[in-house]
Amino acid sequence: MPTVNADMDIDRAWDLHPQVSVRPEPFGALLYHFGTRRLSFVKDLRLLAVLRALPHVPTARAACAQAGVGAAELPRFTAALTALARSSMVIERAAP
C-alpha cells in the first residue's frame, strides 16, 4: 500500500486495475471498480487520455507527456493519479 499522503512515483509503470471499467461520457469518463464497487468521475479529457496511455508507455510521466500535459500542470495530474491509486483504480505494473 502506498503511503496515504505521498504522491505516486510517476517514473514507474502504472495501469488501470484489471477490475476497473472505463465508460466514456460527454464530460470525460466514469470509472467503476468491480472489486471495491467504487465509482469515480474523470471530468478532464486529458486525464482520461493519460489513463488510456498508461499501459502502452514505460512510465506515468511518459503517459502525461503523450497526453500533452506540460511541466507546469504535472503536479496537478500527479495528484489526480495519486487519488486514483489510493482507491486502487490505478495500480503499479511490472515495467515492460
Binding site: R23, P24, E25, P26, F27, L30, R38, L39, S40, F41, V42, K43, D44, R46, L47, E73, R76, F77, A79, A80, L81, T82, A83, L84, S87, M89
Partner: peptide, 23 residues
C-alpha cells in the same frame, strides 16, 4: 462516489454536468 483531485481548471461541478444527463 468519488472524484479524484481534479486539475483546477475543471471548475464545473459534477452535479452541473449531470444535469445534462449521461450516455
Amino acid at each position: 462516489m468519488t472524484s479524484p483531485a481534479l486539475p483546477a481548471h475543471s471548475t464545473r461541478r459534477l452535479v452541473d454536468l449531470f444535469e445534462y444527463g449521461l450516455a
